[in-house]
Structure formats: C-alpha cells, structure tokens
Design a protein around this nucleic acid. Structure first.
Lengths: 197, 197
DNA sequence: TGAATTCTGGACCAATCGGTCCAGAATGGC
DNA sequence: GCCATTCTGGACCGATTGGTCCAGAATTCA
C-alpha cells in the first residue's frame, strides 16, 4: 500500500547484460553497473541480490536471447543458411558473453564458468537440431554440431580482434564453403546448396 | 661491486606466464604473483617494472614459445600432420594465453588486447607458411590460415570447457577430416584447386 | 675485516573493490 | 491532510587492490 513502482527490472537487466558483455565480469564495477543500469546501489542489491547473482541472471537472459536468435533464423531460412545467418548477425557484437565468461572465469570462479559452459551446451544442442533438419543422421549431426560450436567459439573470438567486417565475412564464407562439402544435400533433389563462390 | 645475484629472472617469468595463463590478467593479484614466482614485491617491481609490463613480457614469451612449438612440429612431421600435432599437444593446457587475453582485455585495456592480437597474427602467419609448404597457393594459404586460426581459437576455448580428452580429440579429428578435403594433395601433382561437390 | 653497494622482506600508502545501512523522499490508502 | 509502507541516494564499512619505500641482510672489493 505504498510506492509500488520498482523501476523497470527487465530494462535494467538488459543494460547489465550489455555491460558484462563488453567489459567482462571482473572489470564491470559496481559504479559501472549502477550508472549503466540507471539505478542506485540499494536498488540493485534489493532487486538482484548481489553482483554475482545479477551476473547469473545476465548469463541466463543472454542464453535465452541467443537461442531465440537461432530459432528466428531457422524460421526464416533453410537450416544451413539459418546457421550462416546466425553467425553473420553476430559480427558487430563484442563476442559471445558465454564464451567470454567461460574463459574469464575458468580457474577463477568455476561455478560461473560451469554455468556459462552449460548454456553453451544448450546452444550446441540447437545446432544439432538444425543439422538434423538439414538431413544429417544422429551421429553426423552430433559430430558436426561440435564442429559448429568450434566455429562459433572461434568466430566470437575473432569478433573481438577488431578485424574488418570483410575479414570476418571472408572467414565465415571459407568456413562454410568447406563445411558445406561435408553436409549432405538438403533436399532429395537439386543438391545445389546455394553457396556461390 | 656488490651482491650481483638477482635470482633467476627467466624462471620467475616462466612462473608468471603460468599464473596469468591460468587465472588471467585481472585475477592474478600481486600476492598471487610474488608467491608463484617465489620473489618479493620489491624484486618484482625492480626486475619487471609493474604488473602490466610483466604481463607484456609474459605475452611475448608465450608467443615465442608457441611459435617454437609450431616450428618443432613442422620439423618432425609433414605440414598437415604438424598442424594436427600442434593442436593436439595443446589439449591439457588452460587455453591459449593470447586468446584469453584478447577476450579479457578487449574494451578494458585496448593496448593489452591489441598486443595479444598482434602476437596471434604472427601465429597465423606460421599457419600460412605451413600451408604453403603443404602445396597451397598464396591465396588459398591465406584463406585457410584464417580458418585454422578460427580452429585454434575455437579449440582453445574448448580446452577451458573441461570437456573430456576424448571429446576434444573428436572435435579435432572431425575438423581435420573436413579440412583435409579442402587442401590439395601434398605432392606438386594433382593441381585440382579443391572445390569438391 | 670494513666499507661500499645491491638486494629484498615487509610495513605502509591511497584508491578502489563489493556490500551494508539508514535517513529521507516518494507514493498509496484513508 | 495524514499515516503507513516502500524505495533510493549516498555515506559508510572492512578487505583487497596495485604500487612505494626503507631498514637491514647479503655480497664483493680493497
């Protein structure tokens, strides 16, 4: 029965995701967070517990959004092209929060690293489902999904090496050209996967 | 003309590399470093300047050692197998210090990130030379070297996901199986430029 | 041995870290 | 208007950060 407003929790969380994404867990200080999220220290602790709990919520939100992007690409394109789009759309971003966290927190906070790793596994499962749809059998889908996760990790690192957009695009194109040769034709007919030079 | 000994600088540096490699730049505190290196704060600052300068020396030493490992593999094996060995031998390690640093310091200390990126480019040049030796022309060698750097980055991330050794090996095997199809036969014959399917 | 020089353990420093706390502002029901 | 309740800015806390400094130990030359 008093002052019910509590700012926009989701919006603040989104801002926090962006901060952790760019700076990492350790380098994002409480002043950075409160400024970026537009709320005070007290509100942050009341709403999210502490820095670590906030970060875990950020990991989960980020993973959900990532899976959503993959699902959206799959809804708009045939499986292989969907994967391509998924990677290409990530180019402007500061890598992948899950990959960044896996590396940053390994041997520092194993709990956080493991949490990120678990979410990465979910993304890999998404790749696998996509490959099944592309015509791979179970074994091949699992195998290639692991390779795609390798590509994902590699590209997300490249995204932080400030290569030119053209260089990134070239890496992606070459990779998919090589990869396409290892994936069976999508449909029963017209095996041209639509991958011009 | 007094007390010339100055402990074992190189040995201390090697210990520092191990620490930064495992924990990252930010998480390795001065107490961690002095303990791990077996020297006192004063000696550390006298010998290396400050934490950041020490870290840069570590990056350079690490890069030199990495290039040495690649050279050693090339001396013992044919080019493609050398690359394979190079990756496989990195499995037990805490990723790659250069990759870890690129991610950790991007948007935090751009100078350090750029330094790591520059060293990574040297490694990529090593890949390229290896591919030339394997029979690739200039264009293809540059293209595939970029893909190999992608693989390198991806595998070094996987190394910190505590996957089983078998999983890592499987990722590597699948990747090289796919990759080998895109590389011309080692001999000077068979000029097929490698556009299968 | 004694003097000169160099090295180093550990105290010390200001700054910053994540986290707590409370006084007062803001809001709803009456 | 008033009270009750909730929210929040900012002061405050101890711990830790990277970095400095000095007294004294150690070593070489004469």
């Amino acid at each position: 029965m008093a002052r019910p407003v509590e700012f926009e929790r989701d919006q603040a969380l989104t801002q926090a995701v962006g901060l952790f994404w760019r700076q990492g867990y350790q380098a994002a200080s409480l002043p950075d967070l409160t400024t970026g999220m537009g709320i005070s220290r007290s509100s942050l602790y009341a709403a999210f517990g502490d820095k670590r709990a906030l970060f875990i919520e950020c990991l989960d939100l980020y993973a959900r959004r990532t899976l959503g992007l993959l699902a959206a690409a799959r809804a708009e394109h045939p499986p292989l092209e969907a994967l391509r789009q998924f990677f290409e759309r990530s180019f402007g971003q500061p890598g992948c929060l899950l990959v960044n966290t896996t590396l940053e927190m390994a041997d520092v906070d194993d709990g956080l690293s493991a949490h990120a790793v678990a979410r990465l596994a979910e993304v890999e499962a998404g790749f696998e489902a996509c490959l099944r749809e592309a015509g791979c059998d179970a074994v091949q889908a699992a195998e290639l999904a692991a390779v795609l996760m390798l590509v994902n990790q590699g590209l997300r690192v490249s995204s932080r090496r400030n290569l030119s957009a053209d260089d990134l695009k070239a890496q992606l194109d070459t990779t998919f050209r090589i990869l396409a040769a290892a994936i069976p034709a999508p449909g029963p007919a017209t095996p041209s996967s639509g991958m011009p030079s």
